[in-house]
Write a protein that binds this DNA or RNA. Structure first.
Lengths: 204, 204
DNA sequence: CGTCCCGTTGACGTGAATCAAGGATAGTGG
DNA sequence: CCACTATCCTTGATTCACGTCAACGGGACG
């Protein structure tokens, strides 16, 4: 059985997207599948009232763009310059059969579900400081060791956490005041006291 | 190909659970799968600080208890007296092969993802009244026509919406004041002005 | 050096949480 | 059938966290 990576290497083509470039739009036909090689992508939707729910952030190795329906429910945008492998659904079926696509759908859906659940618990976990603490921990988990680079701006964080940029900013300042984290410029930080941060983020 | 329902009828056994009875606990081995016949089930998790995130409510025809991992991430509890078909994972594989189980996993995961997304948009959609309006609409969608019976208490609603019971109660009172819905006792209501309710629930 | 964009900070208002009673309803035992 | 109690729901008063509005700061770029 081919691994997901093999599959993409065989039938996919590499593409690069510049920062802020749109990869696909909301409502477009979803006949391609994407696999991150480097950089970060964000999916989001514009709503009439200006609120902008963020679906997810995708990092190296993640699959995205594979919808259960026919069209993309959210738009995908490059948060930083990035490289992705793009494959047509058809091509995947040709190479690996229906089974390969099904496996991919399951893998992708399962990941999305896990993320959605984590996101849910972030939003239900009410206080702003808990949300920000959890978010920073999550970034640290992905981003490897200190220092950690935030690829997204404050607005993206705010949208993701259901807060405003001012509140996010204040909470970050507060966490610094408590000596838990330390920002070096506004997009890079170090965790000074992991235990305290875990404490603040509370349960999983 | 067997339908999900057939599958359960062939290898499952019918069980009844009384109101408030636990169907399985958090952390237990997840080697059974459940399909609702009647009644309502809630999944939830207890957290150290007393908050209780609710995963989902399950109604007639829904599958639950099928985890991606080895153990149940949340406990399942009967909200009302209910009947379910229970099948062992092994039995499903024996009858329908790996493929049948995979299909079931995908079906179940996809549904869970859809629900989680809907739930997310409920929580990000900020105001308390919007959340309650959306919730009541959702209940109406499932519950058929007027009048609609709420199987869950205020606490469950509050947990689900990320609010307190007092706020839920106030919002309901407010919606009644606006003549949008009308409660007949605290667990049964009618929608008087569907358009206004849709308006209040806003997008999605 | 000036402009733009993004992030921070402050002052203030507001919506929901909290605290605290008070009613309604259902289940229980007489 | 009716008190009696336990639960659940509603309502009011108060507090507090976060949103909003507004000004300021600082780095990137021309």
């Amino acid at each position: 059985m081919l691994t997901t990576e093999d599959l993409f290497n065989r039938v996919g083509i590499a593409m690069r997207f510049a920062k802020d470039e749109e990869i696909y739009g909301e409502g477009e036909a979803a006949d391609h599948v994407y696999r991150m090689i480097s950089g970060t992508v964000r999916t989001s939707r514009f709503m009439a009232d200006g609120r902008r729910p963020i679906g997810d952030f995708y990092y190296k190795g993640d699959i995205f763009g594979l919808e259960l329906g026919e069209t993309h429910e959210m738009a995908a945008e490059a948060l930083s310059d990035c490289a992705v492998m793009v494959a047509r659904r058809e091509a995947i079926i040709q190479l690996g059969g229906e089974k390969a696509l099904q496996a991919l759908v399951l893998e992708s859906t399962a990941l999305a579900l896990t993320n959605a659940r984590e996101h849910l618990s972030l939003l239900v976990r009410k206080s702003a400081s808990e949300r920000v603490a959890s978010f920073l921990l999550g970034m640290a988990r992905r981003g490897g060791d200190n220092p950690i680079e935030l690829v997204m701006g404050r607005q993206d964080i705010a949208d993701y956490l259901g807060l405003t940029i001012e509140t996010v900013s204040r909470m970050i300042t507060q966490l610094q005041g408590q000596g838990v984290v330390r920002f070096e410029g506004c997009r890079r930080f170090r965790i000074c006291n992991r235990d305290a941060l875990l404490e603040l983020a509370a349960a999983a």
